[in-house]
């Protein structure tokens, strides 16, 4: 589960400087023709750089995203829900591994990516810096955060980089279980006792601002973003994905008589667009830069896992181990 890659709008690199025009034309023609780029192909530096950043952030989001939901494994209500939640959390970790593999084909090692995660150099989806306070929070995450991830991942699975598309196809297939599981949990609470309804309503109220942040701020239209769209690295604008998400899920939320904490949220019948109170982007920036309620805990847990497992990994590493970049 994952939001959109965070591209710094202030960054204006000399994107195409020094690229071979013939190779660049061939590369762009291939993408235009709907063909995929494979790891061994020539690609512009900026294509490689943005894909590494995007796929790596996505991988980190999966592995950190397992933590807020993992909080509830020991206290899941009932054995079936415990099994399902363990399966979901295992899927998220599996997705991280698929994505790290896709990023590795571009030349950044998994060790380097993990180092950048645990030192705070790389970002991950901002939503996971918020806590899952009750079981109902885990239900809202499984339904509405995974739903957002699916919107994003389905778009990206039609991108141009072969290994990323292949990983996303497998991921989307598994996410459909997460969505059903989450919806089932929310419906169970929303159609239950007054106490259960209150729990799920409170969780929804807590999660709505992070959900509105999920796809990121409106894209600044720039040469940079246009090139990334042309290269099928970025597949849809943040605003378009947010609109699509609201279209799909707000009616389903209202259907359960749950209240969204935004009095201005409504679909404009004339424009066909959703209108809402502008999310607090200062809060978004504050949290993505390390000052959210759970940033420190999330990274500390990752560091502990890496550190405590290190001697085991070293002990089982064979003498003749040699790293080769994966082929696909």
């Amino acid at each position: 589960m994952y939001g959109n890659a965070y591209i710094d709008p202030n960054e204006t690199p000399e994107i195409l400087q020094g690229e071979d025009p013939v190779l660049l034309a061939e590369f762009e023609a291939r993408i235009q023709a709907g063909e995929k780029i494979e790891p061994q192909d020539w690609m512009p530096r900026e294509y490689r750089k943005q894909l590494i950043r995007m796929i790596e952030q996505h991988a980190h989001s999966e592995i950190i995203g397992a933590l807020p939901e993992g909080t509830w494994i020991t206290r899941a209500p009932g054995f079936r829900r415990k099994l399902a939640l363990m399966a979901k959390v295992q899927d998220e970790v599996g997705h991280a591994q698929l994505l790290y593999s896709a990023a590795e084909t571009l030349g950044k090692s998994r060790e380097a990516m993990i180092n950048d995660l645990i030192t705070g150099k790389s970002k991950y989806s901002n939503v996971f810096n918020y806590p899952a306070i009750t079981w109902a929070d885990s239900a809202i995450i499984a339904w509405l955060i995974d739903a957002g991830a699916i919107v994003n991942q389905l778009a990206n699975s039609k991108g141009s980089y072969g290994p990323y598309c292949r990983a996303l196809e497998r991921i989307c297939y598994e996410e459909s279980f997460h969505l059903k599981y989450g919806h089932d949990n929310v419906v169970h609470l929303a159609t239950g006792t007054p106490k259960q309804r209150q729990m799920v309503q409170e969780a929804l109220t807590r999660w709505w601002p992070p959900i509105m942040h999920f796809f990121g701020p409106s894209d600044k239209i720039s040469v940079h973003s246009e090139i990334l769209m042309r290269w099928k690295v970025k597949m849809a604008s943040n605003d378009d994905m947010r609109q699509q998400y609201l279209d799909m899920y707000v009616p389903k939320i209202w259907d359960l008589d749950l209240v969204l904490p935004d009095p201005n949220l409504k679909k404009n019948k004339e424009t066909g667009k959703w209108e809402f109170t502008e999310p607090d982007w200062e809060e978004f920036k504050r949290v993505i830069n390390g000052n959210g309620p759970c940033n420190a805990e999330r990274l500390a847990v990752r560091r502990m896992a890496e550190e405590k497992g290190r001697w085991v990994r070293r002990a089982i590493l064979g003498d003749n181990a040699k790293y080769t970049v994966p082929l696909a």
Partner: peptide, 26 residues
């Protein structure tokens, strides 16, 4: 998460970076 509280983790515990082959071959 009670399991994380029980692990007694320091909040700002820097660790040595992972070195090549820490994550094995593929």
């Amino acid at each position: 998460d009670p399991r994380i509280t029980r692990a007694n983790i320091e909040a700002d515990s820097a660790i040595d970076p992972l070195t090549p082959l820490d994550q094995f071959q593929t």
